[in-house]
Amino acid sequence: MKNRSLVSINDFSKEEWIKILDLANEFEKNPTQKILEDYVVATLFFEPSTRTRLSFESAASRLGAKIVGFSDSASTSVKKGESLNDTILTVSNYSDIIVMRHPREGSARFASEVAPVPIINAGDGANQHPTQTLLDLYSIRKTQGTLNNLHIAFVGDLKYGRTVHSLVAALCEFNTTFHLVSPVELKLPSYVKKHIKDKNLTYHQYTNLKDVISEVDILYMTRIQKERFSDPIDYEKVKNIYILENSMLDNSKDNLKILHPLPRVNEINEDVDTNPKAYYFQQALNGVFVRQALLTSILGVK
């Protein structure tokens, strides 16, 4: 993985994903190691995403790296009309690796073509966010002891959520049985289902969350946004069906864990937070270990 960019999850092989997860597990046991003291990590956030940026910067800081960059393009030369090409080439002079988030799809791929240093994509518009997929895989493996042969439910907006699309595609490598819960308007698109069909895996579709809770090992919740509905009445009709409450977990499997990419709005009631099956805050912390594993692998230190 040394010196290779990570723009899309498919830039790395399944074997390489597993190596990253194994390494992340080492960092979880021993997160503070000053092995990147001689390196500069650039974090270029052309749109703000505090959560993702802090996770990367925390990962880099625990490894002793210096961090340069910006958290919002409003205060930079980008605002003055500098091209992405020029920004990337300039920042490459000052850093050994670039972590970037950008509102336009394809920006990270383009940056990886022009930059002499490797790029980690921290989200390019609605396209890819591979570090989220890796931390999701890490969280699933950690809580279930394996990635293979699991029953996984995805709940909410399955149509627009890129997090769901790339995680579904990745899980197709592990013989997953998929349980897809969404309003009819927000079903998983056929080009994502194609991954499932290509691998001859089983999937079930539901419109009611209650039907699936007792069946699965992982409940992956996502937010349903009102603006996704052309008719607000349709939204009003469905919005409460997809709110998870603690009482709904009574008949769930013992090994069930609830994941959510965060931030949540109201789709997981706060009374779930103290249930040991709630895993979403730990899931976010796992992001730091996965990002430590990526930084060190790509810089060739681990």
Binding site: F110, D124, A126
Partner: peptide, 9 residues
């Protein structure tokens, strides 16, 4: 929203 429609690419 593709980058090629917004930059000289």
């Amino acid at each position: 929203n593709c980058i090629t429609n917004h930059e000289n690419i």
